[in-house]
Design a protein around this nucleic acid. Sequence first.
DNA 1: ATAGATGCAAACTCTTTGCAGGTCG
DNA 2: CGACCTGCAAAGAGTTTGCATCTAT
Lengths: 165, 165
Amino acid sequence: MIPKKTPGPRRSAATEQALRVRGLRLTRPRRIILDVVRSTDVHPSASFVYRRVRRRLPSVSLATVYRNLRTLAAEGLLMERADASGLRFDGKTDPHDHFTCLRCGRIYDVPVSPNGGVRTRVAATTGFEVLNHRIEFYGRCGACRRRCGRTPTAGQRRRYGRQEP
Amino acid sequence: MIPKKTPGPRRSAATEQALRVRGLRLTRPRRIILDVVRSTDVHPSASFVYRRVRRRLPSVSLATVYRNLRTLAAEGLLMERADASGLRFDGKTDPHDHFTCLRCGRIYDVPVSPNGGVRTRVAATTGFEVLNHRIEFYGRCGACRRRCGRTPTAGQRRRYGRQEP
DNA sequence: ATAGATGCAAACTCTTTGCAGGTCG
DNA sequence: CGACCTGCAAAGAGTTTGCATCTAT
């Protein structure tokens, strides 16, 4: 059980704290942007976030969304990742891998699988300092397999060829 | 030993063949573009390739470079990859992983390390069909370590913030 | 009061496309 | 000759920035 929250902690104390330490404020746009990213698992693009935020704060600007996504990522409150389709954001900040369906384009989280210490091994063979790594899987997701499409439509999505989120 | 080549096979028969099968031609711009990508290990951007090609064929256009990089990638004659800095191309088409130095931005090839069958495991746990995967390492390369810089300058390069190639 | 945020619009970079003409086979 | 390619210029998409104004603290 989580300690019963006070009635309406509408502004996450933890988040606010994390920001304040660096002299950053938890403004309304910022809070909503973070909330939008955290409330979805579609690994949204900036423009997806923008559209969602606007539903709650119609006056927000795209520039603010970009600026905040970057700030929040820098503070570790969300993750920024780039793929063939541009920038994507991820509210899940704990380690996990990704599976991208080449047919429908959806990105799924997959639990980080035991990888036999690839990181250590690379560090050992190259002499480089490995701080981080990332594993991406590509293929056909369950839904698309059942739909029995034979050919994965997009080898690697062209960068400017629409596929929301 | 490789069977001694005929005097001057200036136009790779194998490549020409691979293209011809699909009704594609090995034109001069195309040949030079492929050659440029294959002759470097910097995982060049389109614009890097463009500049290099222009040294040998000053009249070439950027559009032609883009078109050909895509075509050649589609034919499997080179690899196309997207990262935080945009599109990158790689003349090495055999399986290998990448290490990106967060300090100098250089991308190194690293031999594909035994990964304990991550692919199979993901397929097993998700029920998805895994056709491909990619492992990216991030950290500090040997040179930058020696230079003893303390902080990895760029967490994840902004997309539009120059750093050739 | 004041450093930090915002909105707006313009600037920028990278990438793609339409088209008239050139080239390979 | 016909299909494929090319260069040029212009269009498109995503992302960043300058600036005056506003707002959390």
